[in-house]
Amino acid sequence: MTAKKLTNYEKTVVNDPHQQQSKKATKSVASKTTPPQYISYSVAHAIAGRIRFRIPLLAKDSEYADKLQRLIESDPKTTNVRINSSAASIVIHYQLGVVSDQQMRSHLVNLIQSAPNVAMPAPVTAKSVARAIFDALINLIDGTRNINKARTAIKHRQVRTNSWERVLSSAKTLIKGLKSAILFILPNKQWRSQSSSKDVGLERLALREAGAV
């Protein structure tokens, strides 16, 4: 039996170490790629304009519950969202006549699956607001000092410490001291919007009237 002769192209492929390493790297990356997390769910009850899902992850992951609620609340087709973490369920009210019930159900299922990928905004606290204000004042003073230094350098052909520089330097030191003192006093409590407080009130009222979700 005669051995098959390799063409020049086949010899190049066999003997090219860079191509072999590239294939190995591609296989390694493919093996390390993890599939997206599947969120288990079931439809507990559904009528026109209202649907209730049971999602076991709601009882285990408060971050996921918060992301899912914000994601669904931001949807223009929904009118009310209520989560009961202890019962691992979520009740969603949506507008009638916009899309069919089946389309809305499919849309909500997509939101349930995509909620883990939602980027949450940084929490707004009294400290974060105060820090931003003081940082802006300090940057303003630094910018004014730089302008003043440039002006004196042009006027006297050398950098001099004039009265404005001393005033601005003292003001910066004072503001830094106030910033440290106020940030030490202020609590870390997060601010909640009026709409969020209203949603919580509606949820409590509904739970009193209908019991647990």
Rank of each mutant, 00 (worst) to 15 (best):
I141R: 05
Q158P: 00
I147W: 00
R160D: 09
A171Y: 00
K149M: 04
A181Q: 13
W191G: 11
T152G: 01
W164C: 11
L205K: 10
S170N: 14
R131H: 13
K149T: 02
T173V: 11
S196P: 01
T161Q: 14
L137D: 05
K155C: 02
K172V: 00
W164G: 01
A126G: 10
I154H: 08
W191L: 13
S193D: 05
N148K: 03
N146A: 11
L207Y: 01
R131L: 15
R157D: 09
D135N: 13
L178H: 09
N139F: 05
I141V: 13
S163M: 07
K198M: 09
N139Q: 14
I175V: 13
I133M: 09
S195G: 01
F184L: 08
S193V: 03
T125E: 05
S195A: 13
K176L: 15
K172F: 01
A132N: 09
I185M: 08
S196E: 11
S180F: 01
L178S: 12
W164I: 15
F134E: 05
I138C: 05
T144F: 03
K176Q: 15
S169P: 00
T161F: 04
A181N: 12
A150I: 08
K155W: 07
V167Y: 00
V129F: 03
V129C: 09
S196H: 11
K189W: 01
H156R: 12
W191P: 00
S193F: 01
N139H: 10
I182N: 02
Q190Y: 01
K176M: 14
L137R: 09
L183V: 04
T144W: 03
Q158I: 10
R151V: 07
K198D: 11
H156P: 01
A150N: 14
R204C: 03
T152V: 13
A126S: 09
W164V: 15
S163V: 07
S128E: 02
N146F: 03
R192Q: 11
N148R: 08
L174T: 14
V200G: 00
K189V: 06
D142N: 15
R204T: 07
I138Y: 01
N188P: 01
L186A: 05
K172W: 02
